[in-house]
Each structure stands twice: as C-alpha cells, then as structure tokens.
Amino acid sequence: MRTPAQNAELALLLEVAGTPKPGNVDRHRDLEELRFEHFLAGTVGARGGLELAENGSAIGPAFERAIEGMAAQGGGNTQFGALLLLVPLVRAARDECSQPIVEAVCEETTVADAAGFYRAFDHVDVFVSEPPTDMEPLDVRRGSDAISALEDRGLTLFDIMGHSVPGDDVAREWLTGFERSFTAAERLADADGPLTNRAANVFLTLLADRHDTLVANRHSEAVAQEVTERAGELVERDALETDRDAVEAFADELVERGVNPGTTADITAAGLFIALEHEAITV
C-alpha cells in the first residue's frame, strides 16, 4: 500500500505522462527549454517535502522543501503550482483526504507558513503577474526579502492565497475546498482506460470548463477564452475517442504558440492524488 507522499509522487508522474495535453509538456511533447525528463526529475526532487507533509510538518516548511528539491534539475519550474495543491492534500491525508479536512489544514496555516511559501521563490523562477500597488511590498517575486512586510501585516498563508484570487486558480482551490480538484478525481474514477489517457481526458474537460489563469496572465483573457472554447468543442464531440488527431493538432499548435495551460495541469495532478488516495483508481 502506498503512502500519501508516494501517491503524490505518482500523481505528478501520471499527470506529466498523460497525452495529449494541449500546450503542456507530456511524454510526446517538450517545450523549448522545459522537457519531459525535467518533470520526472522534479517529481523525484519534491519527495522530501511531500514526506515532511505526510509526517505532520507545517505546510510552509514542507512546501519550501518540496520546491527546493523540485528545482534541482536543469529545466526550472516544473510543478510549483501542483505542489502548492499537493502539500496540503498530503498533510490532510494523515487524517482523511476530504474537503473538510483539507479546508481546515489550509485555514490553520500561520505567518510562518507564509514565510516558507515566500522562501520557496528563492529556489526557482515562477511566472507571477504584477501585484496591485498596495501589495507591492508583498510581491512574491521578492522571495525572502518580502518576509518582513509579511510579518508586519500578520498574514498567514491562507491570507496570501485569498489576496491572489481572482487571477490565480491554484489559490482559488485553497479558498473553495479544492472544489475542482475533487471534481477531477470524480471524473478520473468515472473514466475508462489507462490512467495516462484518463488524465489527458480530464485535463481537456477541466480546460473546457474554465479558462486557465496562467494563460490569461501570460497572454490575455481573450486567448484564455479562445483556448477554453476550442477545448469545449473537442470535448463536446468526444474528440479524444472519435478524432484524436484533432486533439493532437490542438496540442501541437498551443506548444508552437507558447500557450501553456499550466494551472489546469496542476489541478489535474491534485485530482489524480485524491483519486489514488480514495482508491478510486489503481495502478
């Protein structure tokens, strides 16, 4: 029987192995400077932080350790957002991998947890939008240099996630009891076939449900909406079963355009973990 940390590691591996995932690295597609093997190495590197969460560590130190290990490969940021979801889920799984428990884990985070989150940005470059003027002292891109401002305001990690919504759907999961992650787990359980195929299918349905905030922030709301509408068209006609070439072409096009729905991939990874913990899917 796998431990929660092992299930989290497996979820990251299954997510990146799923194909086709339009715009994202998968086992058939690399980005210009970010390759499939970087994700494999990032997953292995994150293990120490996931094990800390499993053993009852506070969220902040566990997350920072996971990111430090993840970043010890040549590609840069591979799974920052996914780990921001998985660390509290793994911590919750000590008791029960349920929405009420993970909500409590998130709401009970402290200022020290927020400081650990900020220190994680010292280890890897992460794309983040410009903050509002009143939040400039708390710009996460400042990393540990922003901790004094954080402490002056007494903000917990849950508070920081609240300040990131709307605009960041990983943070939104923290505020909604991981709503979309649990939905993804249900869809994975209901699907058929190899788990990597199921992961790609669920990724596409999530992308069709709601625009990807990473795409919106890197490109524009219009581009994010276009991607969601096109994903919706493919889902509506069950293209992964009836016209897989159309999905493959969409995936290649987004890679060529540099349009990367990374937030949707993060939520897919969280869904895979929940489904594995609930034994709704098996490997």
Rank of each mutant, 00 (worst) to 15 (best):
V247K: 06
T242V: 09
A251M: 01
L240F: 04
E253V: 05
E256Q: 08
Q225N: 15
R237F: 09
G232W: 04
L254N: 03
V235T: 08
T264C: 00
L234F: 02
A246P: 05
R257P: 12
R237P: 01
R230T: 02
A239F: 06
G262M: 04
L240G: 00
G258I: 09
L254P: 03
D245Q: 13
T242M: 14
V247P: 04
G232I: 05
E233W: 13
E253F: 06
G262F: 12
T228A: 12
A246G: 10
V259I: 15
N260K: 03
V259A: 07
A251L: 01
A222H: 12
D245E: 15
L234Q: 10
T264D: 09
E236Y: 03
V259G: 00
T242D: 15
A231T: 00
A239Q: 02
V247I: 07
T228E: 12
R257G: 03
R237V: 07
V227Q: 11
V227S: 05
N260C: 10
G258S: 02
T263C: 02
N260E: 08
A222D: 15
V247F: 05
V259F: 08
E229H: 09
L240Y: 11
G262N: 01
L234C: 04
T242W: 09
F250P: 09
D245G: 14
E253L: 14
D238M: 02
G232Y: 06
R257N: 03
V247G: 11
A231R: 03
E236A: 15
A249R: 14
V223R: 11
E233I: 06
G232A: 06
L234S: 00
A224E: 07
D238V: 05
T263H: 14
R257W: 12
A246L: 11
D245I: 07
E256C: 04
P261I: 09
A222W: 09
T228N: 06
V247L: 05
L254Y: 04
D243N: 12
Q225C: 07
A251K: 03
G232M: 10
V255I: 09
V255L: 14
T242G: 12
T228H: 08
A246H: 07
T263L: 08
E226W: 05
F250G: 06
D245V: 05
V259R: 07
N260F: 10
L254H: 08
E236N: 07
G262Y: 06
E226N: 01
A224I: 02
T264R: 00
A246Y: 04
V235Y: 03
T264E: 04
L254W: 13
V247T: 11
G262C: 03
V255Y: 08
A239G: 08
R230E: 00
D245Y: 06
V255R: 10
D245W: 09
V235W: 11
L254T: 01
E229F: 04
V235L: 05
D245F: 02
T263Q: 02
E256I: 10
V223M: 15
V259Y: 10
R244A: 14
R257L: 14
Q225K: 13
L240S: 03
F250H: 10
D252S: 15
V247M: 02
R237G: 06
A231H: 01
P261M: 05
V259M: 01
L254V: 09
R244P: 09
D238C: 12
V259H: 13
